[in-house]
Design a protein around this nucleic acid. Structure first.
Lengths: 336, 336
DNA sequence: CTGTTAGCGCTTTCAT
DNA sequence: ATGAAAGCGCTAACAG
């Protein structure tokens, strides 16, 4: 249980060579004789030598760590994205530090501060539902740390973004409902500060218009994504003189909350009231009565793309890169 | 976008004092005059000074980082545990690095290697379903890094462990079924290398015995926790001459897989075949027909306890501590 | 109350 | 082909 790890210094002493020789040998620098290199490698292995990353950082100013900030690990969407992030990061030699904002602005601020103080090489973030001021993110860039937003990207902020074409997904979802002969379609959206919510709204409105249907502000609800708020808004929809026949929800969870309200009111979900949602989470496979359809957002792939972009930015001098990059991925409506 | 961060050296120069004065002032060392301390703090703030953790590590041989290794982030049980881990860790000034083994032995090995090479101060781990050789974990201890197992603790290995009293939970679950007049109860367990599986089996057998029921090896199935294997084992149970009337499953997911098999065979779950499971995951709240009851394991709290124990070990000299500690938490049967 | 100095483990320039 | 030495940012023993 000795809290001591082998260093190049020790290797150098045992071998009777200098520290710099060992350092170079370990980097397979050809300036060092083959024989010496072999001896160094051999001893390093038997001594269980592992380079000390802090020392390397001090020299190179790189931690080979990326910070990931997202609302909830518990949401399958995000844990799937993490898997994608982790796979790419580990393969490219980076570690991943994860923090949850729990959709709170102050947690988000703290997490970013902590990322900066631990000198992560880059940050991937999906913004909290509460956030509508991005100064803490600007601080990250001001600190010189590359930042990539994914999925929940901020509105009106130039930045690196990886997201999917929610607008198209919403359009396709509405089109699907219209194809079922539905006329009155409501939108149970998220908080208006998120661009992903604008997109849902745009896709919804575009489809409504294109197919000559009507909607009304009463059919368009904004929630803070919580169960409580969703229930309130759902009750409002059901209390309308002409309640909608179908609802497009921000994600699968909101659909499930809303479906519970339906049941309480004696309505059979997907029969008396149709549901289509976003995310297409694996958990819905377990449900007897999942939303009729859901817009698959390919969370894992978005994680992969975001990480590739981030590492690309980290490893390439700013001059050679365009100021900001945006990657937009396709969605796909999955009918259950 | 300057990739340069303030250092105490710069602060010292601007203030015309020595580096060590600044270092001490920043630590609020009373040996430094109040006035000086104030001036240092003020300048540090305006210069956005953030201490460089790598430099501190180099001195103190501490990274203030803990590595968490678990099977799947996607499983709510683990993501809830992470929340508990994160909350304690952040509060005590530690960062959290997460890795998933995906129940694979070689991923587990790699993740541990990576933890060691990044010199985490301690490791919290829940072992992979595949693992039945613990040499990679022994390597961690040999390296001098404190290790705490949680929930899926290894069998026959002395170590720090935080787990819950699965045996009692299993007993209570069987008792519950017996109270419903059920006679033939099967156990759909996990892989036998996990101690948590022994415990399920023990609790099951103890209850069967105590209430003078009978069971048979045919009623006791071991799975690798995958959906595929669960389906196979479930079909075997249903194909028996006298199929069980109720099944206790390793966790909620297995119950859901098994229930799907029932439905395919025309049986109504929880009517023709009763299900009781472990974990009591929030996702089951969304189900129309969740398992009849589930043994709550308080994942968040286990995460909290494991982290408290680990940090305790990290921060206290080995001499003052018992060699290994084991914390066993209570479970609670939740009837749905 | 404050400064000087050595050193944590490693890379890298400059010598040889 | 190899070594000496400086320095990354910080702490802490020692010296006033």
């Amino acid at each position: 249980m000795q809290r001591h790890q082998a260093t190049i210094k020790e290797i150098a002493q045992k071998l009777g060579v200098s520290i710099s020789t060992v350092s170079r040998a370990l980097q397979n620098n050809t300036r060092i004789g083959l024989r010496t290199r072999e001896r160094v490698w051999e001893l390093a292995k038997t001594m269980h030598y592992v380079p000390n990353p802090a020392a390397i950082f001090l020299k190179k100013n790189r931690t080979y760590t990326i910070g990931v900030l997202l609302p909830y690990l518990q949401e399958e969407f995000f844990s799937m994205a993490i898997s994608g992030i982790e796979d790419v990061a580990l393969e490219k030699g980076y570690n991943v530090v994860v923090s949850q904002s729990r959709d709170k602005f102050d947690r988000e601020e703290k997490a970013l501060k902590s990322f900066l103080s631990s000198r992560v090489d880059g940050v991937i973030a999906s913004v909290a539902a509460e956030t509508n001021n991005y100064s803490h993110f600007k601080e990250v860039e001001h600190f010189g740390t590359p930042l990539v937003f994914f999925d929940r990207v901020p509105r009106n902020l130039e930045a690196n973004k990886v997201r999917c074409s929610i607008t198209d997904g919403a359009f396709e979802a509405i089109e699907f409902l219209i194809g079922k002969g539905i006329k009155r379609i409501a939108l149970m959206n998220g908080p208006s500060n998120l661009e992903v919510c604008d997109e849902r709204l745009n896709g919804y409105l575009t489809a409504i218009k294109k197919f000559n249907l009507e909607t009304s502000p009463k059919y368009i609800k904004s929630t803070d994504l919580s169960k409580e708020d969703t229930i309130i808004k759902m009750k409002e929809l059901l209390a309308l003189e002409e309640p909608p026949e179908a609802i497009l929800t921000f994600n699968d969870y909101l659909a499930l909350y809303a479906m519970q309200v339906c049941k309480q009111k004696g309505l059979v979900p997907n029969k008396d009231m149709l549901f289509v949602s976003f995310a297409n989470l694996p958990m819905t496979f377990y449900l007897d009565n999942p939303p009729l359809a859901s817009v698959e957002q390919f969370a894992y792939n978005m994680g992969v793309k975001a990480t590739e972009l981030l590492i690309n930015i980290i490893e390439n001098p700013a001059e050679e890169m365009p100021p900001y990059q945006e990657i937009v991925m396709n969605t796909k409506l999955i009918v259950h």
